[in-house]
């Protein structure tokens, strides 16, 4: 661990916080139809779009209408993308003349991209044409917008005097035109300025000094990279993802990409604060979540800089764990990226997570299992509020206060739905892992024996369930078994909990807002913040500790005991 590393972290989090607060306010303005600088440019376009599609964007929706519109639009988006990928070999924009995509890869890829997961069971530059990549890029804009607006609909249920959750289509369009498109456009230009290429020219052929011919994959990288990070998508246009020198050429682009992935989910907490007219509440949630993430970052950073004692003994020298890392990012740049990408469920990688030290891998896994360390666009805030509801209920019972949240009474219906939404996550991770380990098809893909092999399988399903998309690459996930299994887990992980949260929103919307009284449990205090954090950690630990003990913890203890596999 170095002073330079710590200063780098401090600078990053200061800049992030300074940008996230205005970004959060801007998102509030966008969704509450307040004037923004893009009104003159985007306004006519949006109105034309609604007129053309026959949608009355002024009509407010109930939870049921909002949920159906969300699901229906996602289905409608998935179908053309699926067909483009299916027929890419006969469609234009295929300069490398790539052939058909296999059926299981097709299913997995579309399920993965329509859910904002971007889990990739294929090598992009060898599998997908430029047109297919553009189709996926469309989903990289539309799906984070979908997650974001569901979270906005949810927080509207707490807003005073509201009788509906808003109009899904207006929210979705405004999220794309006012937030993702302009932000990604600027980010892509900045990335190009710092050396990220962007071309439709197809692969370049180079003749090396030794006379060998080398084919270098090229693509519209900057455009893809910007929304890949900004939308917490994570799917690379090149197989090495953000470790590739085209996707992430230097320390500056690395910093920009880290900021892009963290900006909007962090800002959304402040948007939420504006909706409930309680900025202190937003700062409390931000504070405890940031504290947790910083603690986990320090675990990764210290584990990676300490290195592997077995390797030290073998080489006779001490040093950090450089395996799977890019020297241009260093230990701090790699540790921070690995922490952020699993906290914000982006899934982009600039270091190979399979090569992280056992404790580094444990943090990556644990963050995806908790799914509340900021989390992805919208989905993260929804998960945080799901735990807040449970915390209010549990604490209210303990101290004999009325379980109320932001003026709305929390009753059996909301707690049951929040409990179900919370249980789905461990159920699909652990259930799918159990099935994979119990079947020959599941075990065949495990390339590492012992504890690390178990970690690889759990990581795959945690990443799928959390809609993260990063992988412990030691597992061969491009088999039909894993393509189908992770695809199904991805779909359930995304939609079931979101629908349940919209159901809670509908239920809360129907309740009268009651003014705070002496009997109300205040949630905008540090005491409640720590209780919330404790409940997240206790539930997370109780649910996942056994599998973590059998995976990364056992691996760490074996390493310290000098055991090799």
């Amino acid at each position: 661990m170095t002073l330079q590393g710590f200063l780098g972290f401090a600078l990053f989090f200061l800049v992030l916080t300074a940008l996230a607060v205005p970004a959060g306010r801007y998102m509030y303005r966008v969704f509450e139809l307040q004037p923004t600088f893009l009104d003159k440019v985007m306004g006519p376009f949006e109105r034309g779009l609604f007129r053309l599609s026959g949608i009355d964007e002024t009509k407010g929706m109930s939870w049921r209408q909002y949920a159906i519109a969300f699901l229906l639009s996602n289905m409608v988006m998935a179908v053309p993308v699926y067909l483009i990928l299916m027929f890419q070999q006969v469609l234009p924009l295929n300069p490398a003349h790539l052939g058909a995509v296999s059926p299981t890869t097709l299913f997995n890829t579309v399920a993965s991209f329509v859910t904002n997961t971007n889990w990739q069971v294929y090598t992009p530059e060898q599998t997908l044409s430029n047109l297919s990549e553009f189709a996926l890029e469309f989903l990289q804009f539309a799906t984070p917008a979908g997650g974001l607006v569901v979270a906005i609909a949810f927080v509207r249920s707490f807003a005073l005097g509201r009788t509906d959750l808003g109009n899904y289509y207006r929210d979705l369009v405004r999220a794309v035109t006012r937030i993702f498109l302009p932000f990604a456009f600027v980010a892509a230009i900045v990335l190009i300025a710092f050396g990220v290429p962007d071309t439709l020219g197809g692969p370049a052929v180079a003749h090396t000094l030794q006379g060998a011919v080398q084919v270098i994959a090229r693509a519209p990288v900057a455009a893809f990279e910007a929304i890949k990070q900004l939308g917490t998508n994570g799917g690379g246009i090149l197989n090495a993802n953000s470790a590739h020198p085209f996707e992430n050429p230097n320390a500056v682009t690395n910093l920009i990409e880290e900021l892009l992935m963290a900006l909007l989910p962090t800002g959304l907490i402040f948007t939420f604060g504006q909706y409930i007219r309680n900025r202190r509440q937003a700062w409390i949630i931000f504070g405890v979540t940031m504290t947790l993430m910083l603690a986990l970052l320090l675990v990764v950073y210290s584990a990676e800089t300490a290195g592997n004692p077995l390797v030290h003994r073998l080489l006779g020298i001490a040093g950090p764990n450089w395996e799977g890392k890019e020297t241009r990012f260093g230990m701090s740049g790699s540790s921070l990226f690995a922490t952020l990408t699993t906290a914000y469920t982006t899934g982009a990688v600039n270091t190979m997570h399979d090569s992280l030290m056992p404790l580094g891998g444990l943090v990556a896994l644990f963050q995806m299992m908790l799914n509340t360390v900021f989390g992805g666009k919208g989905a993260g805030l929804l998960n945080i509020l799901m735990y807040v509801i449970l915390s209010v209920f549990v604490t209210g019972l303990m101290v004999g206060r009325t379980p109320e949240l932001f003026g709305k009474k929390i009753e059996t219906r909301e707690v049951a739905a929040a409990g179900a939404a919370m249980l789905i996550h461990p159920f699909i991770i652990l259930g799918a892992t159990a099935i994979a380990l119990a079947t020959a098809a599941g075990r065949l893909s495990v390339l590492n024996p012992g504890f690390h092999g178990l970690s690889e399988v759990v990581y795959a399903f945690s990443s799928a369930a959390a809609n993260n998309g990063s992988a412990f690459a030691g597992l061969n996930a491009s088999t039909p078994f894993y393509a189908i299994a992770t695809g199904v887990v991805i779909l359930i992980g995304r939609y079931v909990s979101m629908v349940l949260m919209l159901y809670i929103a509908g239920s809360l919307l129907a309740k009268k807002t009651v003014p705070a009284s002496a009997g109300t449990l205040r949630t905008d205090t540090f005491t409640f913040g720590w209780i919330y954090l404790g409940i997240v950690l206790i539930i997370g630990a109780l649910t996942f500790f056994p599998v973590l003990a059998l995976g990364p913890i056992a691996e760490q203890l074996s390493m310290l005991a000098g055991k090799v596999f």
Binding site: L71, L72, V110, R413
Partner: peptide, 30 residues
């Protein structure tokens, strides 16, 4: 081709099933 379409059918059916569940869901006050 048939196998390719099977995946698409799976995704569409998944969405239709959820939409049906939401549409049929009773008990929620709106």
């Amino acid at each position: 081709m048939a196998e390719d379409l099977l995946g698409l059918l799976g995704i569409v059916l998944f969405f239709l099933m959820l939409i049906w569940a939401v549409a049929r869901w009773g008990g929620a006050k709106e």
